[in-house]
Amino acid sequence: MVASGTRDRAAVAAKESSAPRRNAAYRSTVGIKVVMAVTGLLFLTFLVLHMAGNLKIFFGAESFDHYAHWLRDIGAPALPHEWFLWIQRGVLTLALVGHVWAAATLALRAKRARPIGYAHRPKVQGSYAARTMRWGGVIILLFLVWHLLDLTVGTVNPVGNPATPYANVVAGFAPSRWPVTLFYVLAVVAVGFHVRHGLFSALRTLGQRTANGERWARVAALGFAILLCVGFLVVPFAVLVGWVGPA
């Protein structure tokens, strides 16, 4: 072969290395997205239950505190005290690691895939929610740290007593602590955006493939996003305007 340029050899080399390997699927970009999708769906399930539990605050301090304490005894007597909670925390932590790992891997790949950017900043043509997944995710992660310190561990909560979650909530969202509430609101909105694209994206990743299904997936994603926003925001709002006050 006389007429063979360097590019031809590069093409041959690329071809040889691209012989499909067995079990390569989980390392592929789709495999990474499946991790993202499955962990995301776990979070979504958790959030829906979490939100439902939060709403118990409207049934009064006793009911709410009772519910909070019950959480520690789910599965009893088969499971000892707080075991379920720790299992759940373990699973969610693993899911978080998986979710962040997948996000970071895809972000790095994306950066690698476009070493030189555009001089004319590309106009967003697709959805805004989709373009804010990464920064939105980081905001949610930062919020999560604060949220755990505030209402789980209690370090930054004015009351901070694990025995009295109702009081913690009321104190945490007290009008005087408005910057905290504002941060909470922003984070919940970020969750809404995140879910709006995330749920649609997860369904797509898991094989949703019809035009009709796409419409339903978009409706479902928007519906869950709104549901979560409203469900989570109604509690601080209620505290702020006094519907829910000190017990």
Partner: peptide, 23 residues
């Protein structure tokens, strides 16, 4: 599977369903 593998090997990024492509 084979086409996805070739896609990834070529250094294309992963899809995040943003929809910029179809737009």
């Amino acid at each position: 599977a084979a086409m996805l593998h070739a896609h990834d090997e070529a250094d294309f990024g992963g899809c995040t369903n943003t929809g910029e492509c179809t737009a």
